[in-house]
């Protein structure tokens, strides 16, 4: 059976919608969910007023079978200290995401930029954005539409590993592809 293009994008939309309703079961990647567990206690509340609203955004992740192709499994790349240079060993990872996004024009990704804990928080937020923007530029050169890519920097606010040592720092200097 041949899937017509519009039917194929419907299928992608449907599978993305299904995944959005699921919480993460992947767990092999660092912090690659944004607003996880939607409707499952996720939220924000002010202490005195007692008002609250649920939050949570982003489509679910998980190595779901897409019509035509899959979201690449490796969704985190790492950086050297004080650097936004994309290391040669991660170029193929970026290329696989670029291919996926080019093949699935309805798919979109949030590039989450992260830093290690050293230095001031707000400057680190800017450095995390610089990292994620470097990835976005690389993807754009590969032909990915900028409208499919959003950059959100978390700076040092959501570490993947704890500890004041180089091993933890290295795990925290990263950009995560959050689909």
């Amino acid at each position: 059976m041949q899937i017509k293009p519009y039917a194929r994008s419907l299928a992608i939309a449907a599978s993305l919608a299904v995944m959005a309703g699921c919480s993460s079961t992947g767990g092999t990647q660092d912090g690659n969910m944004n607003g996880t567990a939607n409707g499952n206690g996720s939220g924000v509340g002010t202490g005195t007023a007692g008002t609250g609203q649920t939050s949570g955004s982003g489509l679910g992740e998980g190595a779901g079978q897409m019509a035509g192709s899959r979201i690449p499994e490796v969704r985190t790349i790492y950086f050297a200290f004080d650097s936004e240079t994309i290391r040669p060993e991660f170029q193929s990872v970026l290329e696989s995401h670029a291919r996926f996004l080019s093949d699935n024009s309805n798919a979109s990704v949030v590039l989450q930029g992260h830093t290690d804990e050293r230095g001031t928080r707000e400057y680190n937020l800017a450095l995390g954005e610089r990292r994620a923007n470097a990835v976005k530029r690389f993807m754009s050169i590969q032909g990915v539409s900028p409208s499919q890519v959003e950059v959100v920097s978390y700076g040092e606010e959501r570490p993947a590993a704890r500890g004041g040592n180089e091993e933890a720092y290295a795990q925290n200097r990263r950009v995560v592809f959050a689909y």
Binding site: N34, G35, G43, V44, T46, G47, T48, A49, G50, T51, Q53, S55, G56, S57, G58, V110, L125, E150, V152, S153, Y154, E157
Partner: peptide, 20 residues
């Protein structure tokens, strides 16, 4: 700054009432 909407935003909140 709160990331509650999935991206950062700047909020202003009254400390006593919690209104923001």
């Amino acid at each position: 700054v709160s990331f509650e909407s999935g991206r950062p935003g700047i909020y202003v909140q009254q400390v006593d009432s919690g209104r923001r």
